[in-house]
Structures are given as structure tokens and as C-alpha cells.
Amino acid sequence: MNWQEHEYDNIPGSYVFDGKRAHSAYALNKLFYSFNEESCRRDFDADPAAYCDKFGLNEEQKKLVLNQDFLGVLRSGANIYYMAKFAIPRGMSVQDAGAAFQGITGDEFREKLLEKREGLEERLEKEGGYWNG
């Protein structure tokens, strides 16, 4: 089985969710999808290991889930939107996850984002035609 390469494979620091990842992490994403149901969230919390077995996770993925290793989970093929169903109720926002990927704190991550606002209004003024309050 040979997975075709894509141009987007070479974008640094980016994991494009395509057939290759969707295929290898199908069970993992299916488990996360089940969390749309509150009863499933409760079943997971009652016995996480059994819940992972029920969805047929492999040993590596099971370990990542039981350890709440969100980064490992992402790298093993979880889709970010599906992972959010697992992470957010456990107090990890997608910004915290992004921060962890870069080895910085959530606050540092948010500070870096806020830098985008600096000079923005002047920039838009120069572009012209933008609403500016």
C-alpha cells in the first residue's frame, strides 16, 4: 500500500488531514465523535480503558488517550475538530493545544496572537475602504 505524496506534505509544522491520516486514525476519531453524546462522555469517564477497547484503538493510541496526551493524539492522526471534543471538556482549549505544540504557555500563545492587532487599524486605513468604527 503506497500513499500518494502531496504538495501540502512539505508545509512545515502542518498536518493536513487527508485520506492517509483519516484511514490510520479512523477508530480514534470515531471515539471522539461519540463524545457528541453526553452518555458516551460519561461511559468514557467511568472506564476509559474499556471505552478505548470498545472502539478498537491500537495500544499506542489507547495510551495517548488514557494519558490525555493531546499532542500525541494529534500527531497520531486525530482531526483537530474531533480532538476538540476530547480536549475542551478537559480544560484544554485549542489555543492551549496550539501553545503546547510550540512549547509555550497558553498565555504566551494568546499574546503572540494579539500582536496581530498592533497597527492593524492604520494598515486598513491605508488600504482604503475598510470600516474603521
Partner: peptide, 17 residues
């Protein structure tokens, strides 16, 4: 925007405009 990977948090104002 990018939510995942080491490039998470990127915003490209020039490209957006």
C-alpha cells in the same frame, strides 16, 4: 488560521486582505 501543528497560531493579514 491554523489550529494544529507547530505552525498553530499563524495569521496572515497580507494574504487575508
Amino acid at each position: 488560521h491554523q489550529l494544529q501543528g507547530e505552525r498553530a497560531g499563524m495569521i496572515n493579514v497580507d494574504y487575508d486582505l
